[in-house]
Nucleic acid binder design. Sequence first.
DNA 1: CTCGCATGAGACATCAATGTCTCATTCGGG
DNA 2: CCCGAATGAGACATTGATGTCTCATGCGAG
Lengths: 183, 183
Amino acid sequence: MAFDRDDVLRAAAELLTRRATATMEEVARAAGVSRATLNRHFAGRDALVRALEDLGIAECEAALDAARVEEGAAVDAVRRLVREAESCAGLLAFLYSESQLFEGEERHAGWARIDERLTGLFRRGQESGEFRIDLSAAWLSEALYGLLAAGSYAVTEGRAARNGFVHMVVELLLGGAIRRNAS
Amino acid sequence: MAFDRDDVLRAAAELLTRRATATMEEVARAAGVSRATLNRHFAGRDALVRALEDLGIAECEAALDAARVEEGAAVDAVRRLVREAESCAGLLAFLYSESQLFEGEERHAGWARIDERLTGLFRRGQESGEFRIDLSAAWLSEALYGLLAAGSYAVTEGRAARNGFVHMVVELLLGGAIRRNAS
DNA sequence: CTCGCATGAGACATCAATGTCTCATTCGGG
DNA sequence: CCCGAATGAGACATTGATGTCTCATGCGAG
């Protein structure tokens, strides 16, 4: 069977998202390849995690592109972004907790680009008067990461319905928990 | 020097929160004890993590008590709770990502009690008309965990000021990102 | 002061994960 | 059909963390 790098990475992401301490052998089994082959293509766990990081970055940027975050009202852009980012929320949650592994090195430049676009989106919303300015754009970005991860966990563990994901994340991030008369 | 179990646990929490893969020897050094002594009191990494889990649960319940979450307006109770929970947000973030280690076992009963009080708080707020009802109490609880963790990360990594923690978390959770005329 | 107990330091065996190697098999292209 | 490249299965050595043991030291209680 031909080795499909992307298939393997997706299987690895799926498993590692659920159990971050999974063995390379378990990853190999989950991906349907032998441990030897896995090692031929990813020289060690670090290389695998780095490849997953690249994948996560690529998917995030794809989501940012697909959501056209630089266009239209910031509020709508955020809605589109969460919708597009749902599919990579799990991977994002994994990388979010795993990033500390590369302590001492500089963070992957891809994250900086993503952070830039994300904070840019929130800053744009603040300048247009859509978003409140007492919460910094950096914090809103961080909160988006956190809520995506929390939403992913909630769905994975069955504490929330999968089809409610976008509504949960978007509404809480944008509108908060307090009930209001009309929007 | 006398062995202070709580001191050691706090040092371990402080280190493991930053680097979840730290060695037992690193933990021992960070706690200022020898590896042998650490092992005498915590038989293995699992036992240490479990002790940290107990500590985290105790601190969460202490925060819930101190915040008197069952009293007064739910909105005010949430504010008090976040204020009280700030000090254990880092530990919470660590346990949040580490809980998967005990896969296969039933979750610690303490978490169920905490979840119960937390969802109870949000449910109470929904019944009193303070909180919107299209976001489930379970999701609001999960989101609180996520925002506490995100806030902890943001502060740790210098992306937000430490003294802004409570404001950031409370305001986003309750009020959301959208700017409004008046509260 | 002296005794006893806990600790620190280090050595040691163990264990699990990992990286590598070999060899048979299989799949695909020519 | 045949050959070559890649894969799967398994063995093997290595590495790093870990659990345990011993012994000397130091601190506190009496």
